[in-house]
Amino acid sequence: MIEAELAGIIIMLIGFYGLMSKRNLIKIVLSINIVSIGLVLFFVGMGYREGASAPIMPREIVADPLPAALMLTTLVVDVAITALALTIILRMRREAA
């Protein structure tokens, strides 16, 4: 089975492919979102440990909570910027019309 980190990097590369080849502005924004999803997977995979449990009620082996916490912050930034990008696209169309 493929590791989560590697899968994350592959998904990021798919996003980069979209950024380099899609002309449609909405598809460009979606490609950026794909990059961010790959990134989140990469980080969450980083914190994973074989047979570990969630670090809520500490047992012997727990997963590293920090990458997940960092990604929570990044996801918030993603949502804000995606909304902003889509708004700017709408305004651009209005300007062109």
Binding site: M12, L19, I28, I32, S36, L84, I88, R91, E95
Partner: peptide, 20 residues
């Protein structure tokens, strides 16, 4: 608006690479 969109897209891509 176009300038802002270009700025946003490139800056954001760079940010993701930075976090990576």
């Amino acid at each position: 608006k176009k300038a802002a969109f270009r700025y946003l897209i490139f800056s954001l891509t760079a940010s993701y690479l930075f976090i990576f």
